[in-house]
Structure formats: C-alpha cells, structure tokens
Design a protein around this nucleic acid. Sequence first.
RNA 1: GCCGAAGUGGCGGAAUUGGUAGACGCGCCAGACUCAAAAUCUGGUAUGGGUUAACCAUGUGCCGGUUCGAGUCCGGCCUUCGGUACCA
Length: 822
Amino acid sequence: MKYPFNEVEPKWRKYWEDNEVYKTDMSDVEKAIYTLVMFIYPSGSKLHCGHWYNYGPTDSWARFKKLQGNNVFEPIGYDAFGLPAENYAIKTGIHPYDSTMQNIEDIRRQLKEMGCMYDWNAELKTCVPEYYKWNQWLFLQMYQRGLAYRKKAPVNWDPVDQTVLANEQVLPDGTAERSGARVEKKMLSQWFFKITDYADELLGDLDNIDWPEKTKLMQTNWIGKSVGTQVEFKVEGFDEIIKVFTTRPDTLFGVTYVVIAPENEFVGKFTTAENKTQVAKYVEDVQSLSEIDRTSTTKEKTGVPTGTYAINPVNGEKVPIWVGDYVLASYGTGCVMAVPAHDERDFEFAKKYQLPVRKVILEEGTEPEAELTEAFTAPGTMINSGQFDGLDSVEGKEKISDYLEENKQGERQTNFRLRDWLISRQRYWGTPIPIVHCDSCGEVPIELDQLPVELPYDVDFSLGSGSPLAREEDFINTKCPKCGKDAKRDPDTMDTFVDSSWYYLRYPNPNYNEGMFDKERANNWTPVNMYVGGAEHATMHLLYARFIHKFLRDIGMVNSDEPFAKLIHQGTITNNGAKMSKSKGNVVNPDDFIVDYGSDVFRMYLMFMGPYELGGDWSDKGIVGVDRFANRTYVLFKDYEGIAKTAKSPDKFDLASLSETEKSVYRKVNQSVEKYAEELEHFRFNTAVAVMMELINELSKNIADCRDELKVYALERFATLLGPVAPHLAEEVWQTIGKEKSLFEAPVYYDVDKDALTVDSVTIAVQVQGKLRAKIDMPVDSAEEAVKEVVWADDKVKAHTDGKTVVKEIYVKNKIYNIVVR
RNA sequence: GCCGAAGUGGCGGAAUUGGUAGACGCGCCAGACUCAAAAUCUGGUAUGGGUUAACCAUGUGCCGGUUCGAGUCCGGCCUUCGGUACCA
C-alpha cells in the first residue's frame, strides 16, 4: 500500500480553503501570535527551494503554535514594485504592471500548493495605489518634520545607458551590469530619509530584541558609533578653521600634518599658487578612479601638499595641510589630523612622503627614543605632550578634551558611520514621490487629501536620460498646489525598501481606507512575534523597518519601539556549493519532487536536512527516507482505521497497570511529545523529525500488543506531532482513526504525562581512568554505596584495576562511576 | 586586513550545564518474501587489530593545556562559508 498523496493533499487543501480554516479572528487578541516570513518578490520564475526552505518550516512553527491553542496569524504578500519587472519590460515590452499581476497569480497558485496556513484574506501587494498611497503619506509625514529632505548626492551613473544605477546593478569591478560601461559618480539631487536622527536609538534598542547576535552585531557595525572629540585647527593666512574629528585626542601632540579629502571644499581655498597645478591634477586623477579602486584598502595611499599650514591648538605648532585620497569626504568633517606614530594609515602615508613621526604615547617596556617600526595604537603613557606628560593615555583623552573645551578649541562629539537613507530612484516602477517643484514656491508637498499621486500606466519606460516619469508630459506637468502656477511633479520614485518598512503593520487590516493602518489593531498584533527571513537583509530592510517603526511611534501611530520581537534567519540552500541562480542554471525545481513525493514529504525533507539556520548543499539522496517514513505512517494508521470511534483513551494511564510492552510504548509516546515540542519551539526541525521517526519505529514494533485504549492514546498523539510538519498527512490519518473534525479546525495538543518520563532503572557507565569499561543497570537515583558494590563486582573493572592503587572514585548520579588508579 | 559562523563515520547530520561520541536518515552488507526483479520487512554497519566471539587500541580539522573525565572549556594555528572595506 502506498500513501496516495496526490489524492490526499489536494483534498485537504480544498477542505481548508472551503472552510476558511486559516482565517484569523483578528479581534481575538488574548493568545495572539503573529508569524511572518519576509514577503515575496513576484518574479517570473517559479518558487524555488529557497522559498520552500523559508516558508515551509516557518509554517510548521506557526501550525505548532496553532495546535497549542494560540490564535495564530500568518499572512503572505507581494513585494511587487522594483527594478526586475521594469528591466523585464525594457527587454520584452510587457508592461511591469501586467507582468507583475500575472506573476502574482502564478505565485499565489504555487504558494497554495505548498499547503501553508496563510490567511488569504490578508494578502497584500505593494504596487497598487491603495497600498503605495500610504508610502506617500509616510513620506509627507517625514517631510513635515524635516526627516525627508533633498540634497545633492553622488550616484552611480551609467554613461552609456544615460541612467542612474542602484548599487546592486554595479558589478564588483566597477562596471555596469547591463551596459558594461564603467560606472561614474555623478552629483544629482536626491531624496533622503534622515535615519541618522535615530542612530543612537537604533543602536541602543538592539539590546531589547531577540535577534541573532550576528545580525545585531552587523547592525552595530553598520551604525558605527564612535565617541571622540572635534578639534579646531587654525589655518595660517586664512580665517577659515579646519575641524577634525578624532577618537584619540590623547595623541594631539603627535600631529605632524593634516589631511583633507580631495572633494573637500577647502582644497581649492587652501592651495597656494605654486601648488595649484599639481593639486588640481591630483584631484582630477582621484575622481576618475572608480569607487572600487578608490576605496580598495590594498591600494597605496596617495596625496599632495597644498602648501598651506595649520596650527595645532595645543602647542601652536605649524603642520602642513595635505590632500589625500585616504580621507573620506563623507565621514566626519572630511578632514583628519594625522598622527603617524599612533595610526597605521598615517604611519604608512608619512613613511611614503617622508613626513615626521613623533611618538607621544609610550608602550610599556619600550624606550622613548626607540624608533617605531609600525604605528603603536594601544594605550600607554603620554610623552612629548607638555603638561600632559606622564598621564595614562586613557585618562589623557579626557584631560585633553577638557582642555580643548575650556579653551574653546574643540568639543566632545559622537559620530556615526551610518548615512541617511537615499530613497529616490530614477525609475518608473515604484511609488511616485508626492512633491511638486514650483519656480516660485520651490518644493511643495502634495496635500494629504490629494493622495495618492497615481503612477501613470501609459509611459515610455525604455531607457533614456533620467527618470522615465520626467518624459511623461501628462504626469510631470501640473499646477503648484500653493500658487496655482505651472509646476512640475518630482520625477523620481521611492526605493522599494520603503514599501517593506511597514507592510507588517498593514497585514492585520489590508483593506483599511481610513489611514495607513488601523492603529488599534496594529498595536494588538505587533511587534511581530516571529519574523523569518534571509540574513542578507541585516543592514538594509531590517534596519529601515526598525527606523520607520520608531518614526511611526513618534507620530503616535504605534505604541511599541520595535517591529520584530524575535527574528530567525533561514540558512541558504546551495547547489554544488554555489548559490542557486537562474544565470548559473543550477536551480533545483521543487515541482519535480512535489510530483514524485508530495508537498509534505518535500517540506519534511527540507527540515530533516540539517539545522535550519545553517542551510546546506542540496542533495536529494535522503528524500526516500522521509518518503518511507510517510508511507509507514500512513500504513500504520490504516491498520487501525476507525479505532478512535470504538475505544477512547484516558488522559493518562497508571504505569503499574501496563504490561512491559505497553509501558515501553507509553513512555516513548510521552518522551516524543515532550522532546518534539522542545525542538519545534526552537526551530530545530531536523531533530523534531527524528523524534517522530523514532516514535514510528517503536510503534510499528509494539503497538499491536497494546490494549485498544493505549493504541488510540498513541495514535492520536502521533497525529498531532505530524500536524505541523506534514499537515496534509496529519489530517488524513486523524480522519482515518475516526476523528470527526479537522485537526486544524479544532486544534489539539496533548500534555505530557511526566510520570511516564521517569524511568525506574538507568544504565551507568563505569570508567577506569576515564575510559569506558562496563555498563551496569541500576535503580534510578541509587546511592553511591549501592553502585560501588555492583561496580567492584564487575570482572572488567577488576581486570583493569588489578594490582593498582585506587586513588579516587567519582560517582555522578545516574550517569557515570569513574575509578582513578595509579 | 578586520568582524562573525562552521569543521564529527562512505554521506546529511545527533549529543541539556564537561559525564556512555555517532541519535535519526541515506548508502552499503546479509537475510525474509518472489520464478526473478522492484517495492516492502528484519538484522548488521566509526576505524584498525584479534582464533572475526570475548576483548584491545585509536577516533569529533591541526598542535598544546586544564580536568578523574573534553566534540563541549582555555591558548596557538589551518581550512571553508558569510559580512565588511582606509569611518580617523
């Protein structure tokens, strides 16, 4: 007999859908659990193994929670805006809206075949005005508070296609993915969200969320908080002051030159007439380098002197001002003080250009006169530092900062590596930015009651210069909301990460029209209890969503600080060690396995492969094992068809009344229920499946010799364990033994009989010198004396201790007895 | 370079706080069923030695340490994978 999955699976999916088994009652918040996977990008390709690996196990967790009696909400939706659809349109002429909608239809059908308990009433797509209207609303809320602003910023410019590229479209060698042209940096006016205002809170609140440590660390590094001091250097012959940021004010007496970034406005100003040609040429050379070449750490640092001198505020010393490519224009003030003795980069630069190296921090155990062969960057004792000599440099940091602040020559400052979020894209397929540019009034926001600014359908989205919307006369030309004169709409669209920064708040009320989302309902259901998605989003989506959530809190839309209380990353499934991708042609198609084994088996096999967070290399070698398990399970239940109708199981059995075989079955069932729950709770699906395999091994051996009540007891519990990981099969066997209602319609999860877990005898390992020599069975919790007697009666123990002196005997209750001899 | 994770049989992988290494599955071997094969079921399966049983030795990337006892803790390496790229 073979498990007829191709009849059973569609049958139950139809039942679930017809009876709306997975529709969540959003008003019941008592035991509410919100489980979410990162929504899906509706591309033209089919669901691949990665999707299954993400969604299947997460759904199993959600189902587990449902069986345990929680009101579980598990939605799915489509991240429907974005570049791939637009590029596809450019290639084929098929409109992004049409292809996206078609893809959503296809993907929905495939998702339904997986058999996840998605609440299809809560489906969401971001490319419809009902959704993106609220992106615009959000934008305007930020604009009003100065958190959305426009400034000139360098963008990736493709000189062949005449367009701006996203970072992802630039290959590691600095050429464009599409045209192959060398990408240039170009200054363009761009919209930004001021995420830096939230930098400190985004960092601090990482302590309050249950996320993988490595993800929190990545965000910590990305935010890059650094505490230091801004120091002011006067410039000889100029009124301007150079401000530099340093984390090492204790090394201020060791400054031997100052460096400014090539892009810094001071470059032109401070360069003397005799250095002008050289500096101008240098700046031009640097700018012609690609971003990659420019920032490569292996590249040798270069620079030229401006001919002008700065004055060190603490000792009045004149130091040369250089222009150097190792200083970033975008961090701090774009100017740094150079202390070659105590900074590796400065040391390297100083050696190359024969600039002086002055030691001001003494390493313990070294001589002040000893020449440095490399920069000494650790703390030490201050020398050559005037009144600060002899201080420990950690203390000196504070003392010098105090001194600078007292003398108004600097102040303590905290800098962040995090930059504001550039959200404008010169692309068609996205949310239009709700701003009008008027010659008289400047930037004018659209009135809230005029939203949405609809994305026009009939546009020429083929590549040309700048944003496609800029060429659409009907769209771009409008009247200024303020003065009524002719004006132009902003031609850009928003980064799709804006869409995904708040979608989880709309799932509980996807058709809400009164606002972005129903505040009360969102607050009842968020933060999301369990969020599952790829680790590649660590510093993008997962940071942006936290930022937007905090902003929404500040304008009174939500009452929590964080969007996702718990986060788990699924691992990556590779094929022959490489990431699966269409271009490599190594994508494993799940459909082939669904046809041969069914969706439950495929899902279970993915879970059984290994630890969820690790992923692994794809191999179909073991799937027959899981298939055998499913078949054996089906056959076992078939043997007891209808048994639950004739026999009822008690909540628990009295151990003393059971035969040895029954006791063994009873124990195994209870052990399994307990272990399984522990494993599934923590996303350890591989071992959860193993628990069930052990259980069926026990049942196929011994269940026949049990009384009917115990058979029912064992089978109904086994069925509930199957529920989360093999939902179709579970429903089927549940029905087979005679249960009237669907398992998920009337969720059941059984308590463990703790008495069944306690065993009356244990095997104790007997060791001599830590080496296993014997195993003895003893009553549980035996006293040392009793164990000792049995141990010393053992022949092997005698053989290994014969003629030796016993030094020590160690007894660990119920575990080991170790004898140390000499 | 820096940060993080992982290295366990032929293979995927198990192993609460240091306490019987190899659960579970694949594969392989043997047997049952069969005219035969497939499927299914039963048993065996870390490596080396051993009169093939008993038993002995070795064994969790490498070298060393702590401990009665280390896959697990400590120090130093090696390899693979992910993140990041001069952030002063």
